[in-house]
Amino acid sequence: MIQTKQDIMKQTITVMQELFEIESSKLQPKARLYEDLDIDSIDAVDLLIELKRITNKEINPDQFKESKTLEDIVDVIASL
């Protein structure tokens, strides 16, 4: 099954809502993780673990760390 970027975006948004209880209106593709969504480095670790589990993909932590926005995360996962 090929996942489209849209699917991945949906999954990522669901994970973020579960982990951080962020209002869905704030979860826009261009939303900045740290500044807009208040996700710090410790949160990022939990987010990575959960995304790996749900997408079943080996996401590279270094590549993941480079992500600045929600869209960036989706791009990293889509490139795998």
Binding site: E18, L19, F20, E21, I42, D43, D46, L47
Partner: peptide, 8 residues
């Protein structure tokens, strides 16, 4: 709840 919620 997940630990991330507990932190908050």
């Amino acid at each position: 709840k997940p630990v991330t919620i507990q932190y908050r």
